[in-house]
Simulated assay, not measured.
Amino acid sequence: MNYLKYTQYVYLIFAGFFVYDGVTKFHSEGGPWLSFFIAALAIFMFFFRRKFAKKFENHGNNKP
Rank of each mutant, 00 (worst) to 15 (best):
M1Y: 07
M1Q: 05
N2L: 05
N2A: 07
N2R: 04
Y3F: 11
Y3C: 09
Y3M: 08
Y3A: 07
L4G: 10
L4E: 10
K5F: 12
Y6G: 09
Y6N: 11
Y6I: 11
T7Q: 12
T7W: 12
T7M: 13
T7K: 07
Y9V: 04
Y9S: 08
Y9D: 06
Y9R: 08
V10L: 11
V10R: 03
V10F: 07
V10Q: 03
V10M: 10
Y11W: 08
Y11P: 04
L12K: 00
L12I: 04
L12G: 04
I13S: 10
I13T: 09
I13G: 11
F14S: 04
F14P: 00
A15H: 00
A15P: 00
A15M: 02
A15S: 05
G16H: 01
G16S: 03
G16Q: 01
F17I: 13
F17K: 05
F18K: 03
F18G: 01
F18M: 12
F18N: 03
V19D: 01
Y20Q: 08
Y20A: 14
D21H: 06
D21A: 10
D21M: 09
G22M: 03
T24Q: 04
T24H: 02
K25E: 02
K25G: 04
F26T: 04
H27E: 08
H27V: 12
H27A: 11
S28N: 07
S28C: 04
E29T: 11
E29M: 07
G30R: 10
G30I: 06
G31S: 15
G31W: 05
G31N: 14
P32I: 01
P32E: 02
W33F: 07
W33S: 03
L34C: 06
S35M: 05
F36L: 03
F36Q: 00
F37S: 12
F37I: 08
F37E: 09
F37Y: 10
I38G: 00
A39I: 00
A39Y: 00
A40D: 05
A40T: 10
L41E: 01
L41R: 01
L41K: 01
A42H: 06
I43Q: 01
I43R: 00
F44R: 07
F44L: 13
F46H: 01
F46I: 02
F46S: 01
F46E: 01
F47L: 06
F47Q: 03
F47E: 05
F48A: 09
F48C: 05
F48V: 07
F48T: 05
R49I: 12
R49P: 08
R50W: 12
R50Q: 13
R50F: 12
K51D: 10
K51R: 15
K51E: 12
F52Q: 15
F52V: 15
F52T: 15
A53C: 15
A53E: 15
F56H: 14
E57K: 14
N58E: 13
N58H: 12
N58Q: 13
H59K: 14
H59N: 13
H59Q: 14
G60N: 14
G60R: 13
G60H: 14
N61I: 15
N62I: 15
N62Q: 14
K63R: 12
K63G: 11
K63H: 12
P64Q: 09
P64L: 07
P64Y: 06
P64S: 10
